[in-house]
Simulated assay, not measured.
Amino acid sequence: MIDLHSHILPGLDDGSPSLAESLEMARLAVADGTTHMACTPHIVPGMYENGSANIARAVEGLEQALRRAAIPLALYVGADVHIAPDLPEQLALGSVPTLNRSRYFLFEPPHHVLPPRLEDLALRLINAGFIPILTHPERLTWIKANYDVVERLNAIGCLVQLTADSIVGAFGRTALYYSEKLIDEGRVDIIASDTHGATRRPPGLSQAVAVAAKRCGEDEARNMVLKRPGEIL
């Protein structure tokens, strides 16, 4: 399986705090059947000032550590990109990374507040040639009152990525409800772990795939963790 959303790089955000933790996360991911992982630390202006250069360096460092530890996990550069008005320009300049230099990138709206003109920003990004992957809409607290925004973002060309733990109920009833609704409506393109640690939000996709398969069939569930992520990378 291929995991397109992880906070496995040590010390760059609220994910892994250390190399030892990152290696343990990698071991858990591999044991669960993950073979490829995009390293996607947060980019949040004023909070997590990450960019293409330092993320690429961190990926290289972790790759070397994985080789030394004989952990067979292939890594790719990416980022969990918080919305910003100059995002189309930053992506075009390459200062904010897409997933493995593709046109696809993780597009993270604020968790608790629906920002104004979110759809306008998404359209600008799409018109600039990029494809936003809307991260974990099922966990956004504003989804209840604004489900139509998610529908419209999907309709204009944003892909939808669910968190594996939401699908198995680990993020509570609301996230589970919207995970099931989005799967049943055929809106979900990708399942990813969004792992932040070895014990707190550990990696792993297999349980979620098994649960999703009961709603959308095994082939489609596999597409969410293998075919589509593979095509994106």
Rank of each mutant, 00 (worst) to 15 (best):
Q207S: 05
D219K: 13
A84Q: 13
R222E: 06
S166V: 02
P10H: 09
V96E: 11
R139C: 05
C158K: 01
E63F: 02
D189Q: 07
D219T: 03
A20H: 06
S16M: 12
D13S: 11
E63S: 12
P110M: 02
P137L: 05
P132M: 10
A56W: 00
E180Q: 11
K227I: 11
I133W: 08
E220A: 09
A155P: 01
I133A: 06
R117G: 12
S16D: 14
Y104R: 02
L93Q: 15
C158H: 00
R139V: 10
V168L: 02
S22H: 03
S206G: 03
I126L: 10
A208R: 04
S22Q: 08
D189T: 05
E89A: 15
L205A: 02
A29K: 08
N223T: 00
E138V: 05
Q64A: 13
G197W: 10
L162G: 06
E151Y: 11
F107M: 12
A128C: 01
R222F: 04
I55W: 09
Y178C: 00
D13T: 09
T199N: 02
P45F: 14
L162F: 04
L153F: 00
V225E: 02
I133H: 12
N127C: 13
Y147F: 06
V44K: 09
G186W: 04
V149G: 00
T135E: 09
I232D: 00
H7M: 11
D120W: 02
G61L: 03
L125D: 11
S102N: 13
P41F: 15
L162V: 06
G157E: 04
K227Q: 06
P115W: 00
D3S: 14
L28H: 05
A92F: 11
L140E: 01
A69H: 11
G46P: 14
N100Y: 13
V59I: 06
K181H: 08
V160Q: 01
D148L: 04
R228P: 00
A31I: 07
R139D: 07
L62C: 07
L121F: 10
I191M: 05
F105P: 12
P110S: 03
L233M: 14
L4G: 12
V113T: 05
V96I: 14
G169V: 01
